[in-house]
Structures are given as structure tokens and as C-alpha cells.
């Protein structure tokens, strides 16, 4: 076993070395390198994955993150927008009095106290140890109670049959789904597809539990907002600039 682990570490170390130099902005590295987790090891609560979204950098009309999400997770328009899945959407906001406008991407907020998990009758809606809120489609019965309970409208119900799924992202008719934070990518140390696609650098992914991570440092420095903070859900996705 120790031999196996060693070879893994060497391998991952090499990958890390290759990526270490990749910096998109001063102080903003693309990959947090300390997270390598062997495939056989369970996700742990020492981490809490989260996003910081800077709405002042998010361009109105730009939908790169939405497109990247659909491509990564294997869904697109079926011609019925009202039943289409939307794991991430661009919301345009206008302050009612001043007309002050913002644009930002909205997705599952990966709450620490997720209402969808509380209401799910079978436990299909669950929170992984590292804070990612997921739907276990194997035991989802399609009751849609989580969709009633989510204050962010972050869940979609699959209304139609699908084929040619991404092998890493199974999805099918009759179950509820939502943003997984690209858990399949996180588990191999990649960032969520939306974050990677954002040319403006408006999205930052990282470990909220690690005080030295870029995301934690920024949250400690700048004023950030949780959407519907009044509900006390302690969201994993935070916003800057609204």
C-alpha cells in the first residue's frame, strides 16, 4: 500500500509542479494545490468547497459560465425553456429605486444548512462531507419537494428522457438535479467548469475552511454577501459587489 501511495504522490507532485506556475492574476492561482486526495479516500469535512463571485467583474450578457456548465454536464436547450434544466443562470438585477444594475451567475449555493436536504423524504438530497450539496439520483423518487424548499430556485427536474450523457455526469428523466460544483472535476483536483470558463476572472473557487486559501483571504479582506443571508443557511457561494 505504501508503495502505491508513494507513486501516487510522485505523480501528483509532477502534475502540481507543472501547474504551479500558472497564475491568472497576481495572487490568484488557478489551482489550489494542497488538495490532492487519493481516489480511495473519502471526502472530508476538513474542507468546505465554495465560490466567491465578483459581480462587478461579471459582464452583462456574457453567458460563458452557463455554456460551459451545459457542455460539461451534458445538457442544453430542448426547445421548452420552462422545463429545461438550468444548473446555473445569469441573473440581471436592477435596484428598484436607483436603477443600479448588476449581473451575476446564480446556482446552487451549497448551503451549510440546506433546506433541500431537510425536506428530502428519502435522503437523496444530501450534503457531502466537504460541503457540496448533491442529489443521489439512485434514491431520488422525483417528488420535487426540494424544489419547493430551495430559496434560490437552484434545482431542476428532468422532464424528458435523455441519451448520450457525459459518462461522468449521469442524468435522466424523473429525478431532480442541480449544480454539483462539478464534483467529478473537484475529485480529480480540477475547478468547476464555470470557474474555468470565466474570462473576466469573476469566479474564484477554493476551500473556505483553509484560512490560507485565496478565497478565504479575500472573504476576510473584502465585504462579501450571502444571498438571502436572513435565512441563516450559511451558503458556500458568496458574492462581492452586491
Amino acid at each position: 500500500m505504501s508503495k502505491v501511495d508513494n507513486s501516487r504522490r510522485l505523480f501528483i507532485g509532477a502534475g502540481a509542479a507543472a501547474t504551479a506556475g500558472l497564475v491568472i492574476a497576481p495572487g490568484v492561482t488557478l489551482l489550489d494545490l494542497a488538495h490532492a486526495r487519493p481516489a480511495g479516500e473519502a471526502a472530508s469535512s476538513t474542507k468546505r468547497w465554495g465560490l466567491l463571485i465578483d459581480s462587478s467583474k461579471c459582464a452583462t450578457g456574457c453567458t460563458d459560465c452557463v455554456t460551459a456548465c451545459g457542455k460539461e454536464n451534458g445538457f442544453g436547450s430542448t426547445g421548452h425553456p420552462e422545463t429545461d434544466a438550468q444548473w446555473i443562470r445569469k441573473v440581471e438585477l436592477k435596484e428598484i429605486k436607483s436603477g443600479n444594475s448588476h449581473s451575476l451567475p446564480m446556482m446552487c449555493q451549497h448551503c451549510a444548512e440546506p433546506p433541500c436536504v431537510d425536506v428530502c423524504p428519502t435522503g437523496a438530497s444530501f450534503k457531502r462531507a466537504d460541503g457540496i450539496v448533491l442529489v443521489d439520483r439512485h434514491i431520488c423518487i422525483g417528488c420535487r419537494y426540494c424544489m419547493m424548499a430551495c430559496p434560490y430556485k437552484a434545482r431542476s427536474f428532468v422532464h424528458e428522457e435523455h441519451e448520450d450523457q457525459n459518462p461522468e455526469v449521469p442524468r435522466g428523466k424523473g429525478c431532480v438535479e442541480g449544480c454539483t460544483l462539478c464534483v467529478h472535476r473537484i475529485d480529480r483536483d480540477q475547478q468547476p467548469a464555470c470557474v474555468e470558463s470565466c474570462k473576466e476572472g469573476a469566479m474564484l473557487f477554493g476551500d473556505l475552511n483553509d484560512p490560507n486559501s485565496e478565497i478565504s483571504k479575500r472573504i476576510a479582506t473584502y465585504a462579501t454577501t450571502q444571498v438571502r443571508a436572513d435565512l441563516g443557511l450559511n451558503t458556500g457561494v458568496r458574492y462581492q459587489g452586491i
Binding site: 431537510d118 428530502c120 428519502t122 422525483g142
Partner: peptide, 25 residues
């Protein structure tokens, strides 16, 4: 009306007790 009515047995065997639905079962 469930999306997966064929999984009735799942609804009976996997119960999340914080859910009102599960209590209602």
C-alpha cells in the same frame, strides 16, 4: 405523480426523518 413512481419501495426503505414527507409515511 412522482418522477420515479417505480421507486415506491425506495420511498418506503430510505427515510430521512427530518423530512415531513418521511414522517407522513
Amino acid at each position: 405523480d412522482l418522477g420515479r413512481s417505480d421507486r415506491l419501495i425506495v420511498a418506503m426503505t430510505h427515510l430521512n426523518l427530518t423530512s415531513v414527507f418521511a414522517l407522513n409515511v
